[in-house]
Design a protein around this nucleic acid. Structure first.
Lengths: 257, 257
DNA sequence: CGGAGAATTGACCTGATTCAAGAACTGTGG
DNA sequence: CCACAGTTCTTGAATCAGGTCAATTCTCCG
């Protein structure tokens, strides 16, 4: 990954990082960033982006590696480039609840806020574009537009968390599973949303992680999946693959009476 | 639309004449606003405040009255002046989960975001200071500082929601109750935090509302309270009053092994 | 005092967890 | 390519925390 333009044609984004910038940050180039358009950076003009670019570093995370630990002074922000990260909360005796999932183009971190009480970990190998918190804050301070964009994202994240609170507090295991399958499909399966035809995709989470998202146990997740399989609503071709056979049936189960 | 009631108060105190929900308050000026310091407005200079003041209206909400409905286009923002509001999510068949509580000085609404999927209702009589969303957005757009302040508040709200996700997904009924009692005391009981001495205060929520916050049923809430009473951890003098007798015992139950 | 809503209490039931055993993958090295 | 070890996933049986249903009992007010 270097600064050559044009490998990936992202419309008009033709900033040329100056050679000395390339040297100093050889692995951090925005022009061919896969999430340029969808990330928070999407709000920036090319000139602004090139300023921000100087503050960022790319970083690889191996499966299981943490980007932030609950309780520690948070010192960084980041955009997710590839892979999926989990944001999780833990009780003193080790029970875990995943309180958020971060997909490519999502933003992590809380500029202007001191502490971050959650742990952020890569579920599989991942790449992120990190900023020192103070740098990022400085940058934000001069761009109301970007602050606004981050505010909007945060509102969305909040709504998502609240929707999940309803799920955790009031929905049955089967409703939770149905919801999870649909949500995950919409997020990663792309929008081959078209009709109701069967769709197959790989779940990006292990059964254990799904349980931690849904506030269930591994066994319950597994049983509910088999139940759906037996009912002919989904198929489980093996591994982490799922085929949604009757999408409308799933949708009906989401909020059932 | 808004009939001007021209009793000249300080500067341009324009207030809606609809007597029912939008009343005129002789003290309806920011200068003697009870939550001036703690609310989002606390970030403003006097000059800015006086500009914002022209955009706001005070409004009384009677117990049970809604400020926003899930699904409807959100058209307002507000600061809570007095009383407590709930933010709640509902399933199709009527199960309810309270996903947030709003106390005086809290901000409600999502500027720059179209839809709001939750219902906001006054738990008891309440007063709020409302703004038309577009007005508020306009105001925010010219003040990066205030946008930042709102961003911080939103991060805090998000952290709170996530903490509650852990509670809903992974904690037992007794842990939930212990947590709720302590949190509520800290929020309303003021910080007579001092020692571990017994403290008495009124719960601002009915048993039913507590159940909807904690993802439990009324009966379970009631049973857990009696259990705590029998154990000598709290006393229930009657009505909605609670006395915390052994605060450290409660604290230990919060996250127990 | 009396009546309505709120809270408590009891008896029973059920959905999800727990504990325990196998089966199916995944990757590694021979 | 296969064997093997370490996971992860599935399935079964027993248990239990919390929910449901059904009475009372409080509390608040007119």
């Amino acid at each position: 990954m270097d600064a050559r333009v044009g490998t990936k044609m992202l419309d008009s984004c033709t900033i040329l990082a100056r050679p000395d910038d390339e040297e100093r940050f050889p692995t951090s180039v925005c022009t061919d960033c896969a999430v340029r358009r969808d990330s928070l950076c999407g709000t920036l003009t090319d000139a602004e982006l090139s300023r921000l670019h100087r503050l960022g570093r790319r970083r690889r995370l191996r499966r299981g590696e943490a980007f932030a630990w609950a309780g520690e002074e948070s010192r960084g922000c980041a955009n997710v480039l590839s892979g999926i990260l989990k944001v999780s909360a833990l009780t003193a005796d080790g029970r875990e609840q995943i309180v958020g999932l971060l997909y490519p183009s999502d933003f992590v971190g809380q500029p202007f806020v001191g502490s971050f009480e959650f742990t952020v970990t890569a579920l599989g190998d991942a790449e992120i574009c990190t900023f020192r918190k103070s740098d990022f804050e400085g940058f934000l301070s001069t761009r109301n537009g970007m602050t606004q964009a981050l505010l909007c994202r945060t509102f969305d994240t909040l709504s998502d968390a609240r929707r999940r609170m309803l799920l955790l507090g009031r929905q049955s295991a089967s409703e939770r599973i149905a919801d999870f399958l649909l949500q995950t499909f919409e997020r990663i399966g792309g929008c081959s949303a078209s009709s109701n035809g069967p769709v197959t995709f790989d779940l990006p989470l292990s059964r254990g992680a799904i349980a931690d998202v849904l506030g269930l146990t591994i066994e319950t997740v597994s049983r509910q999946m088999t139940k759906l399989k037996v009912a002919g609503v989904i198929a489980l071709p093996g591994g982490r693959a799922v085929t949604i056979l009757k999408r409308d049936a799933l949708r009906r189960m989401t909020d059932a009476a």
